[in-house]
Simulated assay, not measured.
Amino acid sequence: MRSCLADDFLLTRLNRDDIEITSRYRGRRITSRELASTFRADGVPTTVVLSLQVECLLHLSGYVEPAPLRVLLAYLSARAYREVPYEAFRADPAGCGRASGMRTSPD
Results as ranks from 00 to 15, higher is better:
26 R>Q: 14
26 R>S: 11
54 V>A: 08
104 T>G: 15
31 T>W: 10
29 R>S: 15
69 L>C: 03
24 R>K: 13
90 R>I: 00
74 A>K: 14
100 S>N: 10
26 R>D: 12
107 D>K: 11
102 M>V: 06
7 D>A: 12
32 S>P: 00
85 P>F: 04
31 T>R: 08
12 T>A: 15
77 S>H: 11
40 R>K: 13
90 R>E: 13
68 P>K: 11
91 A>F: 00
69 L>R: 08
106 P>A: 15
71 V>Q: 08
74 A>P: 00
105 S>N: 10
28 R>M: 13
79 R>K: 10
106 P>I: 09
17 D>Q: 08
38 T>N: 13
84 V>P: 06
104 T>Q: 12
58 L>D: 04
73 L>Y: 11
57 L>P: 02
4 C>L: 13
13 R>L: 02
3 S>Q: 14
69 L>I: 02
103 R>L: 08
30 I>Q: 15
23 S>M: 03
41 A>E: 06
21 I>N: 05
58 L>H: 03
103 R>Y: 02
86 Y>L: 11
92 D>Q: 09
81 Y>N: 05
60 L>F: 01
83 E>V: 06
24 R>I: 09
105 S>V: 14
79 R>G: 14
63 Y>T: 04
84 V>L: 07
102 M>W: 07
59 H>I: 00
94 A>P: 00
40 R>G: 02
2 R>F: 03
54 V>S: 11
50 L>S: 07
58 L>K: 03
80 A>F: 06
62 G>R: 12
106 P>Y: 11
83 E>R: 14
53 Q>V: 03
78 A>C: 14
56 C>L: 08
27 G>F: 07
32 S>W: 05
54 V>M: 09
103 R>T: 08
107 D>W: 10
41 A>I: 03
29 R>H: 10
54 V>N: 14
39 F>Y: 15
51 S>I: 00
35 L>D: 10
2 R>Q: 11
62 G>P: 04
16 R>A: 12
51 S>V: 00
99 A>D: 10
20 E>V: 05
106 P>V: 13
74 A>H: 12
55 E>V: 00
56 C>D: 01
56 C>F: 00
64 V>P: 01
40 R>H: 10
43 G>P: 00
48 V>N: 09
73 L>F: 13
89 F>S: 05
1 M>R: 09
81 Y>T: 02
75 Y>C: 04
47 T>V: 12
28 R>Q: 15
33 R>I: 01
41 A>C: 10
39 F>Q: 10
45 P>W: 05
34 E>D: 15
23 S>C: 02
107 D>T: 10
37 S>F: 04
105 S>E: 15
81 Y>F: 14
15 N>P: 01
102 M>E: 04
46 T>M: 04
52 L>A: 14
92 D>T: 06
63 Y>M: 02
46 T>Q: 06
49 V>M: 07
14 L>H: 03
33 R>Q: 15
60 L>A: 09
105 S>R: 13
2 R>A: 12
12 T>E: 02
74 A>N: 13
58 L>V: 02
48 V>G: 08
19 I>W: 01
63 Y>A: 09
87 E>N: 05
101 G>C: 09
34 E>W: 02
96 C>Q: 15
101 G>F: 05
67 A>M: 04
9 F>G: 06
76 L>Q: 08
83 E>W: 11
103 R>P: 01
50 L>F: 08
105 S>T: 15
50 L>A: 06
